[in-house]
Simulated scan of single mutants.
Amino acid sequence: MRRDPGGGPDGGPVTAVERVAVRTRDLTKVFRGFRAVDSVNLEVREGNVHALVGPNGAGKTTLFNLLTGFVAPTSGTIEVFDEDVTGRPPEQIARRGVARSFQITSLFDSLTSREHVELALQGTGRQGFRFWRSEKLLGRDTARVEELLGQVGLMPLADTPVGALAYGQKRALELSLALALDPPVMLLDEPTAGMGTEDVDRTIELVRRIAAGRTVVLVDHNMRVVGSLADRVTVLQQGRILAEGDYDEVRNDERVITAYLGEAHHA
């Protein structure tokens, strides 16, 4: 529940019900008889940071792929702000305001950070990928490019080839590319994967900044990251929702403890 600082008739705070940004109903994906996602009913509230966690193979990435249109569901529905987007391709879901980062970086080493963001902005529909247009026209988004790079702390490296960036800086650049869509909903797949402690701390603060005014769904195995950022946590196991609640609730849930200990025992 979100508090309205404006106050009610008696001068006290007004409690407003948050809208549901992303909702699934009985969402299921079957791969050759294997139920990777099994009847998942998920509600992500607008303005929240909602974490998806679970042991390896729990279905987290498949659920992400379903929500962003990279995989079509076997059954069930997906809604974004009450609009049914079930089975729509990724570009259509992106136009509905859902942007995604991936677990594995996919950047062009020879291009600079600035050039990556310029290309991302060209793809938002204002001018398309019209590379023959004049440099003057292509440069009209300069202020927005610099704003996006500034948001993720990369302006000092704007003209550095991406191949020369550190791993954490590349992940930050990917976030800026997702932000170029100005999305109300961002899905972040393992944003701190492979990072050292300093990069993890910087990424936590970065995600906290970009989450202001938007909804974020994230997958991360680092429970310190989840505990630092998440308003709500959904735990998946074998494609189903095992538990849900705030961070303290789920980390003390015996079913969750058993699921993670079971994974460690069989590792």
Rank of each mutant, 00 (worst) to 15 (best):
R2G: 01
R3L: 14
P5W: 13
P5R: 09
G7A: 10
G7M: 12
G7S: 05
G11H: 12
G12R: 15
G12N: 13
P13W: 10
V14H: 05
V14P: 02
E18S: 14
E18D: 13
E18A: 15
V20D: 04
R23D: 09
T24C: 01
F31E: 00
F31I: 15
F31Y: 15
G33S: 10
F34R: 04
A36W: 13
V37Y: 00
D38G: 10
E43V: 04
V44C: 07
V44W: 05
V44H: 02
R45N: 10
R45M: 15
N48F: 06
V49S: 02
V49D: 01
V49L: 12
H50Y: 09
L52I: 14
V53F: 05
P55T: 12
G57I: 06
A58M: 07
T62F: 01
T68Q: 08
G69Q: 08
V71H: 06
P73N: 10
G76A: 05
F81C: 06
T86E: 08
P89Y: 10
P89T: 13
Q92G: 01
Q92K: 15
A94D: 06
G97Q: 13
G97I: 08
A99F: 09
F102D: 05
T105K: 07
T105Y: 07
F108N: 08
L111S: 04
T112F: 05
E115S: 02
H116M: 06
L119C: 07
A120Y: 11
L121A: 08
G123Y: 07
G123K: 04
T124S: 04
R126S: 11
G128K: 13
F131N: 14
R133D: 05
S134N: 03
K136A: 13
K136G: 13
A143P: 00
R144D: 08
V145D: 01
V145L: 01
E147G: 00
L149W: 06
L149F: 03
L149I: 04
Q151Y: 00
V152G: 00
M155R: 11
P156S: 09
P156T: 05
T160K: 12
P161M: 12
A164G: 10
Y167K: 03
K170C: 09
K170R: 15
L175T: 04
A178M: 10
L181H: 14
P183R: 09
P184Y: 02
V185E: 00
L187F: 14
L188C: 03
P191N: 02
P191R: 00
T192N: 05
G196D: 02
E198R: 03
D199R: 04
E205Q: 14
E205V: 11
L206S: 04
I210Y: 02
R214P: 08
L218D: 03
D220R: 10
D220V: 06
D220G: 03
H221Q: 12
V225P: 06
V226S: 05
G227L: 14
S228Y: 03
A230L: 08
R232W: 14
R232L: 03
V233E: 07
R240G: 02
A243Y: 11
A243H: 10
Y247F: 15
T258F: 04
L261H: 14
G262Y: 12
H266P: 01
